[in-house]
């Protein structure tokens, strides 16, 4: 049952990922990527990690991708242009991709974990255990992440602030 569900979701995730890379229109890519995130969230549920699954939807699908779609709609982007000068990148990309997939298949066949008994514990995914670990054993990383988030907020605000007035810029363009 879980296996069938896993293969269904894994197929969906891979199909959406390929579609994300394949489509030239950024909005199609974004919608496909949301599909990947949602199927990964369902896979986390089968891995008995409900907290991570819900956070995945909340952070990735609910916040990051909304921002991305907002930017795509705001800038009104058209389709991706084809490569003009760097055509050899197709070859490099394809080669690298094949290499990585070969590596994944190698991992699948060569690494044998049959000898090790997997610890069957569903308690690890509970909110309580995550919260306890987060605020006792891993307090320092959590604090560092908090500071990082604060820096990101300040950075994003400074970055997207309009430094020059639009009229001034137009005047400059006219001069050029």
């Amino acid at each position: 049952m879980v296996t069938a569900l896993f293969y269904l979701l894994a197929g969906l995730a891979i199909a959406c990922a390929i579609s994300c890379v394949y489509h030239k229109n950024p909005l199609y890519s974004a919608v496909s990527l949301i599909g990947v995130f949602l199927s990964l969230a369902c896979i986390y549920l089968t891995l008995s990690a409900p907290f991570i699954a819900v956070t995945q939807i909340l952070v990735y699908a609910g916040a990051i991708m909304v921002l991305v779609i907002f930017v795509i709609m705001l800038l009104n982007l058209d389709e991706d242009k084809p490569l003009n000068s760097l055509t050899y990148l197709y070859g490099v990309g394809g080669g690298l991709g094949l290499l990585l997939i070969a590596q994944a298949i190698f991992v699948f066949y060569a690494v044998n974990t049959a000898g090790q008994e997997s610890v069957d514990s569903t308690a690890a995914g509970k909110t309580l255990s995550i919260g306890l670990a987060m605020y006792t054993q891993y307090l320092l990383p959590v604090e560092i992440v908090g500071i990082l988030l604060l820096m990101a907020i300040v950075g994003a605000m400074i970055m997207s602030r309009r430094i020059r007035e639009p009229n001034q810029r137009k005047a400059e363009k006219a001069v050029e």
Binding site: I34, L38, P50, F51, V54, T55, I57, L58, A61, G62, A63, V66, I69, K126, T127
Partner: peptide, 18 residues
């Protein structure tokens, strides 16, 4: 009865914006 009920509701509501 989800262990993360409140977060689940918030998460699904936030996906609704799509």
């Amino acid at each position: 009865d989800l262990d993360v009920g409140v977060l689940y509701v918030l998460a699904i509501t936030s996906v609704g914006v799509y």
